[in-house]
Amino acid sequence: MAEMGRPVAPPNLPALVKAAFDKARVSGDITYYPTQVAVLTPGSIAFQLRYAPSLALKPKAPKPKEPNGKPFNPFENPSPAMLVAELPPSHRLVLNKFAIVPEHFILVTREFKPQTHVLEKDDIDATFACIQAYRGVGQDLFAFFNSGPHSGASQPHRHLQLLPVASMRTGLEDVDRGSQWNVLADTLTGSSKTLPFNVFTRSIRPDMSAEERHSAYLELYRHAVKAVYPDIEAHDEGEAQISYNFAMTGSTMALCPRTAEGVMLKNKSGEDIGQVSLNGTVLAGTALVKNQAEWDALREDPDVLLHVLGGISVSP
Protein backbone atom coordinates (compact mmCIF):
# COMPACT_ATOMS: atom_id res chain seq x y z
CA MET A 1 0.00 0.00 0.00
CA ALA A 2 1.35 3.48 -0.91
CA GLU A 3 2.45 5.73 1.94
CA MET A 4 0.18 8.70 2.62
CA GLY A 5 0.92 11.55 0.23
CA ARG A 6 3.39 9.58 -1.89
CA PRO A 7 3.18 9.99 -5.66
CA VAL A 8 1.66 7.01 -7.47
CA ALA A 9 2.03 6.68 -11.24
CA PRO A 10 -0.87 5.23 -13.24
CA PRO A 11 -0.18 1.50 -13.87
CA ASN A 12 -1.06 2.04 -17.56
CA LEU A 13 1.46 4.91 -17.84
CA PRO A 14 3.28 3.51 -20.94
CA ALA A 15 -0.04 3.31 -22.82
CA LEU A 16 -1.02 6.84 -21.67
CA VAL A 17 2.31 8.26 -22.87
CA LYS A 18 2.07 6.50 -26.25
CA ALA A 19 -1.52 7.65 -26.83
CA ALA A 20 -0.70 11.26 -25.86
CA PHE A 21 2.45 11.30 -28.03
CA ASP A 22 0.71 9.83 -31.09
CA LYS A 23 -2.22 12.26 -30.80
CA ALA A 24 0.00 15.33 -30.26
CA ARG A 25 2.23 14.36 -33.17
CA VAL A 26 -0.76 14.13 -35.53
CA SER A 27 -2.21 17.43 -34.28
CA GLY A 28 1.15 19.24 -34.55
CA ASP A 29 1.32 20.04 -30.84
CA ILE A 30 4.74 18.39 -30.72
CA THR A 31 7.54 18.18 -33.28
CA TYR A 32 9.31 14.86 -33.77
CA TYR A 33 12.76 15.09 -35.38
CA PRO A 34 13.80 11.93 -37.28
CA THR A 35 17.44 10.94 -36.81
CA GLN A 36 20.13 8.81 -38.37
CA VAL A 37 21.94 6.61 -35.86
CA ALA A 38 25.33 4.94 -35.48
CA VAL A 39 26.93 3.04 -32.62
CA LEU A 40 30.54 3.98 -31.86
CA THR A 41 32.73 1.72 -29.74
CA PRO A 42 35.80 3.71 -28.64
CA GLY A 43 37.63 2.20 -25.67
CA SER A 44 35.38 -0.14 -23.71
CA ILE A 45 32.07 1.68 -24.26
CA ALA A 46 29.31 1.40 -26.86
CA PHE A 47 27.96 4.89 -27.50
CA GLN A 48 24.90 5.74 -29.56
CA LEU A 49 25.34 8.75 -31.85
CA ARG A 50 22.31 10.37 -33.46
CA TYR A 51 22.28 12.95 -36.25
CA ALA A 52 19.28 15.26 -36.57
CA PRO A 53 19.93 17.63 -39.51
CA SER A 54 16.47 19.21 -39.18
CA LEU A 55 17.37 20.43 -35.67
CA ALA A 56 19.95 22.77 -37.22
CA LEU A 57 17.09 24.34 -39.21
CA LYS A 58 14.92 24.86 -36.12
CA PRO A 59 14.16 28.60 -36.06
CA LYS A 60 15.70 30.45 -33.16
CA ALA A 61 12.69 32.62 -32.38
CA PRO A 62 12.84 34.97 -29.41
CA LYS A 63 11.64 33.24 -26.25
CA PRO A 64 7.95 34.06 -25.77
CA LYS A 65 6.90 36.14 -22.76
CA GLU A 66 3.78 36.23 -20.64
CA PRO A 67 1.59 39.38 -20.82
CA ASN A 68 3.24 40.58 -17.58
CA GLY A 69 6.68 40.41 -19.24
CA LYS A 70 7.81 37.25 -17.43
CA PRO A 71 9.45 34.56 -19.61
CA PHE A 72 6.93 31.98 -20.81
CA ASN A 73 6.94 28.84 -18.65
CA PRO A 74 5.66 25.81 -20.65
CA PHE A 75 5.36 23.75 -17.47
CA GLU A 76 3.21 26.15 -15.43
CA ASN A 77 -0.17 25.58 -17.12
CA PRO A 78 0.40 22.91 -19.77
CA SER A 79 -2.21 22.63 -22.51
CA PRO A 80 -4.45 19.53 -22.42
CA ALA A 81 -2.67 18.27 -25.56
CA MET A 82 0.66 18.21 -23.69
CA LEU A 83 -0.59 16.78 -20.38
CA VAL A 84 -0.04 13.03 -19.89
CA ALA A 85 -1.17 12.62 -16.26
CA GLU A 86 -1.27 14.29 -12.87
CA LEU A 87 0.92 12.76 -10.15
CA PRO A 88 -0.53 14.17 -6.94
CA PRO A 89 0.39 15.67 -4.64
CA SER A 90 3.44 17.39 -6.12
CA HIS A 91 4.07 16.59 -9.80
CA ARG A 92 2.56 16.16 -13.25
CA LEU A 93 3.70 14.52 -16.49
CA VAL A 94 3.82 16.39 -19.80
CA LEU A 95 5.12 15.60 -23.28
CA ASN A 96 8.39 17.02 -24.52
CA LYS A 97 7.47 19.51 -27.26
CA PHE A 98 10.58 18.80 -29.37
CA ALA A 99 11.24 15.05 -29.43
CA ILE A 100 14.26 13.22 -30.80
CA VAL A 101 13.16 9.99 -29.11
CA PRO A 102 9.53 8.87 -29.55
CA GLU A 103 7.38 9.16 -26.40
CA HIS A 104 9.85 11.47 -24.63
CA PHE A 105 8.00 12.89 -21.63
CA ILE A 106 8.79 15.07 -18.65
CA LEU A 107 8.09 15.03 -14.91
CA VAL A 108 7.54 18.60 -13.64
CA THR A 109 6.75 20.06 -10.24
CA ARG A 110 3.22 21.44 -10.09
CA GLU A 111 4.46 24.50 -8.19
CA PHE A 112 7.46 26.37 -9.54
CA LYS A 113 10.70 25.09 -8.02
CA PRO A 114 14.17 25.97 -9.34
CA GLN A 115 15.98 23.54 -11.65
CA THR A 116 19.23 24.62 -9.98
CA HIS A 117 18.24 23.40 -6.50
CA VAL A 118 19.15 20.01 -5.05
CA LEU A 119 16.39 17.48 -5.78
CA GLU A 120 13.92 16.76 -2.99
CA LYS A 121 12.63 13.40 -1.80
CA ASP A 122 9.34 13.79 -3.73
CA ASP A 123 11.24 14.44 -6.99
CA ILE A 124 13.14 11.16 -6.67
CA ASP A 125 10.06 9.31 -5.46
CA ALA A 126 7.83 10.48 -8.33
CA THR A 127 10.54 9.59 -10.86
CA PHE A 128 10.93 6.10 -9.44
CA ALA A 129 7.14 5.64 -9.48
CA CYS A 130 7.22 6.25 -13.26
CA ILE A 131 10.11 3.79 -13.68
CA GLN A 132 8.17 1.17 -11.74
CA ALA A 133 5.03 1.73 -13.85
CA TYR A 134 7.08 0.85 -16.94
CA ARG A 135 8.70 -2.13 -15.25
CA GLY A 136 5.23 -3.35 -14.28
CA VAL A 137 4.51 -4.03 -17.96
CA GLY A 138 7.99 -5.38 -18.74
CA GLN A 139 9.48 -2.13 -20.08
CA ASP A 140 12.41 0.04 -18.99
CA LEU A 141 12.54 3.80 -18.52
CA PHE A 142 15.62 6.04 -18.41
CA ALA A 143 15.22 9.22 -16.33
CA PHE A 144 17.67 12.12 -16.35
CA PHE A 145 18.08 15.55 -14.79
CA ASN A 146 20.17 18.50 -16.03
CA SER A 147 21.14 21.09 -13.42
CA GLY A 148 23.36 24.14 -13.80
CA PRO A 149 24.86 26.14 -16.69
CA HIS A 150 27.22 23.35 -17.85
CA SER A 151 24.63 20.54 -17.79
CA GLY A 152 22.54 21.12 -20.90
CA ALA A 153 19.65 22.53 -18.82
CA SER A 154 17.26 24.81 -20.70
CA GLN A 155 14.21 25.45 -18.49
CA PRO A 156 14.33 27.07 -15.01
CA HIS A 157 11.22 25.20 -13.77
CA ARG A 158 12.29 21.92 -12.12
CA HIS A 159 11.81 18.87 -14.31
CA LEU A 160 13.25 15.43 -14.92
CA GLN A 161 13.10 13.91 -18.39
CA LEU A 162 11.92 10.37 -19.11
CA LEU A 163 12.78 8.22 -22.13
CA PRO A 164 11.39 4.72 -22.77
CA VAL A 165 14.44 2.55 -23.45
CA ALA A 166 12.61 0.74 -26.26
CA SER A 167 12.17 4.13 -27.98
CA MET A 168 15.86 4.90 -27.48
CA ARG A 169 16.61 1.79 -29.54
CA THR A 170 14.70 3.15 -32.56
CA GLY A 171 16.73 2.36 -35.70
CA LEU A 172 19.42 0.35 -33.91
CA GLU A 173 18.18 -2.96 -35.35
CA ASP A 174 19.47 -1.85 -38.77
CA VAL A 175 22.83 -0.52 -37.54
CA ASP A 176 26.21 -2.21 -37.32
CA ARG A 177 27.02 -2.84 -33.62
CA GLY A 178 23.47 -1.73 -32.75
CA SER A 179 23.02 -4.78 -30.53
CA GLN A 180 26.03 -3.71 -28.43
CA TRP A 181 24.35 -0.55 -27.13
CA ASN A 182 22.79 -0.69 -23.67
CA VAL A 183 21.97 2.11 -21.23
CA LEU A 184 25.43 3.13 -20.01
CA ALA A 185 24.45 3.82 -16.39
CA ASP A 186 23.24 0.23 -15.98
CA THR A 187 26.61 -1.15 -17.10
CA LEU A 188 28.69 0.87 -14.63
CA THR A 189 27.84 -0.39 -11.13
CA GLY A 190 30.42 -2.92 -10.03
CA SER A 191 32.27 -2.72 -13.36
CA SER A 192 35.89 -1.83 -14.04
CA LYS A 193 34.88 0.09 -17.17
CA THR A 194 37.05 3.19 -17.61
CA LEU A 195 35.28 6.32 -18.77
CA PRO A 196 36.89 9.57 -19.90
CA PHE A 197 34.50 11.55 -17.66
CA ASN A 198 33.77 11.36 -13.95
CA VAL A 199 30.60 9.54 -12.89
CA PHE A 200 29.46 8.23 -9.52
CA THR A 201 27.02 5.30 -9.36
CA ARG A 202 24.90 3.47 -6.85
CA SER A 203 22.72 0.35 -7.15
CA ILE A 204 19.11 0.78 -6.04
CA ARG A 205 16.35 -1.72 -5.25
CA PRO A 206 12.56 -1.57 -5.59
CA ASP A 207 12.15 -2.30 -1.86
CA MET A 208 14.12 0.79 -0.77
CA SER A 209 12.12 3.47 1.03
CA ALA A 210 11.70 6.95 -0.45
CA GLU A 211 14.13 8.23 2.21
CA GLU A 212 16.74 5.64 1.26
CA ARG A 213 16.52 6.50 -2.43
CA HIS A 214 16.80 10.22 -1.72
CA SER A 215 19.79 9.57 0.58
CA ALA A 216 21.46 7.57 -2.20
CA TYR A 217 21.04 10.54 -4.58
CA LEU A 218 22.43 12.97 -1.96
CA GLU A 219 25.42 10.69 -1.39
CA LEU A 220 26.24 10.78 -5.13
CA TYR A 221 25.75 14.55 -5.18
CA ARG A 222 28.17 15.00 -2.25
CA HIS A 223 30.81 12.86 -4.03
CA ALA A 224 30.41 15.00 -7.16
CA VAL A 225 30.76 18.31 -5.26
CA LYS A 226 33.92 16.95 -3.60
CA ALA A 227 35.32 15.95 -7.00
CA VAL A 228 34.94 19.52 -8.31
CA TYR A 229 35.66 21.42 -5.08
CA PRO A 230 37.67 19.21 -2.68
CA ASP A 231 37.56 21.81 0.11
CA ILE A 232 33.82 22.59 0.02
CA GLU A 233 31.17 20.82 2.09
CA ALA A 234 28.11 19.90 0.03
CA HIS A 235 24.67 21.20 1.11
CA ASP A 236 21.75 18.75 1.04
CA GLU A 237 19.19 21.37 0.02
CA GLY A 238 18.86 24.71 -1.76
CA GLU A 239 21.04 25.91 -4.65
CA ALA A 240 23.34 23.21 -6.03
CA GLN A 241 27.04 24.06 -5.77
CA ILE A 242 27.97 22.47 -9.12
CA SER A 243 26.51 21.74 -12.54
CA TYR A 244 25.71 18.06 -12.92
CA ASN A 245 23.67 15.40 -14.70
CA PHE A 246 21.77 12.80 -12.71
CA ALA A 247 20.21 9.63 -14.11
CA MET A 248 18.07 6.85 -12.72
CA THR A 249 16.91 3.47 -14.02
CA GLY A 250 15.16 0.61 -12.25
CA SER A 251 18.47 -0.61 -10.82
CA THR A 252 20.97 2.27 -10.91
CA MET A 253 21.54 5.91 -10.01
CA ALA A 254 24.39 7.77 -11.72
CA LEU A 255 25.63 11.34 -11.29
CA CYS A 256 28.22 13.19 -13.35
CA PRO A 257 29.69 16.55 -12.24
CA ARG A 258 29.87 18.89 -15.25
CA THR A 259 32.46 21.58 -15.93
CA ALA A 260 31.54 22.29 -19.59
CA GLU A 261 28.41 21.82 -21.68
CA GLY A 262 30.33 20.73 -24.74
CA VAL A 263 33.54 20.57 -26.71
CA MET A 264 34.49 22.11 -30.06
CA LEU A 265 35.22 19.48 -32.70
CA LYS A 266 38.04 20.08 -35.15
CA ASN A 267 38.68 18.46 -38.50
CA LYS A 268 42.03 16.92 -39.50
CA SER A 269 43.26 20.36 -40.61
CA GLY A 270 42.60 21.77 -37.13
CA GLU A 271 39.60 23.87 -38.23
CA ASP A 272 36.54 24.15 -35.98
CA ILE A 273 33.58 22.19 -37.37
CA GLY A 274 31.03 22.46 -34.58
CA GLN A 275 30.32 22.36 -30.87
CA VAL A 276 29.09 19.00 -29.57
CA SER A 277 26.95 19.67 -26.48
CA LEU A 278 25.85 16.94 -24.09
CA ASN A 279 23.10 16.70 -21.47
CA GLY A 280 22.03 13.93 -19.11
CA THR A 281 21.56 11.45 -21.96
CA VAL A 282 25.36 11.09 -21.81
CA LEU A 283 24.65 8.79 -18.84
CA ALA A 284 22.59 6.58 -21.17
CA GLY A 285 25.54 6.46 -23.57
CA THR A 286 23.99 8.67 -26.24
CA ALA A 287 24.98 11.90 -27.99
CA LEU A 288 23.33 14.11 -30.60
CA VAL A 289 24.87 16.14 -33.44
CA LYS A 290 23.17 18.59 -35.77
CA ASN A 291 25.54 18.98 -38.71
CA GLN A 292 27.07 16.68 -41.29
CA ALA A 293 30.68 17.59 -40.51
CA GLU A 294 30.30 16.55 -36.85
CA TRP A 295 28.47 13.36 -37.85
CA ASP A 296 31.20 12.43 -40.33
CA ALA A 297 34.14 13.31 -38.04
CA LEU A 298 32.87 11.20 -35.15
CA ARG A 299 32.06 8.18 -37.31
CA GLU A 300 35.39 8.35 -39.16
CA ASP A 301 37.37 8.45 -35.91
CA PRO A 302 35.34 7.24 -32.90
CA ASP A 303 38.25 8.11 -30.59
CA VAL A 304 37.32 11.77 -31.15
CA LEU A 305 34.28 10.97 -29.00
CA LEU A 306 36.61 10.16 -26.10
CA HIS A 307 38.05 13.66 -26.46
CA VAL A 308 34.53 15.16 -26.31
CA LEU A 309 33.56 13.08 -23.27
CA GLY A 310 36.82 13.92 -21.52
CA GLY A 311 36.12 17.65 -21.92
CA ILE A 312 32.79 17.81 -20.07
CA SER A 313 33.79 16.83 -16.54
CA VAL A 314 36.65 16.67 -14.07
CA SER A 315 39.05 13.78 -14.61
CA PRO A 316 37.94 10.49 -13.05
Results as ranks from 00 to 15, higher is better:
D122S: 14
K266Q: 00
I30C: 06
R213V: 07
A9N: 05
P64N: 11
K97I: 14
E103M: 13
V276D: 02
Y217P: 10
L172C: 12
I131H: 03
P64M: 07
H150Y: 14
E239W: 09
S54G: 11
Y229F: 13
V17G: 01
L255D: 06
G152L: 04
V308M: 05
T35K: 07
I100Y: 12
V108Y: 08
A284W: 03
F197S: 00
A24E: 07
P206D: 13
P89A: 04
G280I: 11
L83Q: 09
T281A: 01
Y229M: 12
I312R: 02
M82G: 07
P257W: 01
R50I: 02
L306Q: 13
A9S: 13
S313K: 03
K268S: 15
F112Y: 15
S209C: 11
K113E: 15
L172A: 09
D29N: 14
P42M: 13
N291L: 11
A287H: 00
Q161M: 02
I100W: 12
I106E: 06
G238L: 10
L306P: 05
P88D: 13
P302K: 06
A224T: 00
N198I: 07
F145G: 04
W181A: 01
H117D: 15
P206V: 10
R205C: 05
R110W: 08
K70G: 02
E219K: 02
E111C: 12
V228W: 08
L218G: 03
D174E: 14
Y32G: 07
L162R: 03
A293D: 14
A20Y: 07
H235P: 12
K268H: 10
E66A: 13
V225Q: 13
F72G: 12
E3F: 11
P114Y: 14
D236N: 15
A46P: 08
A2L: 13
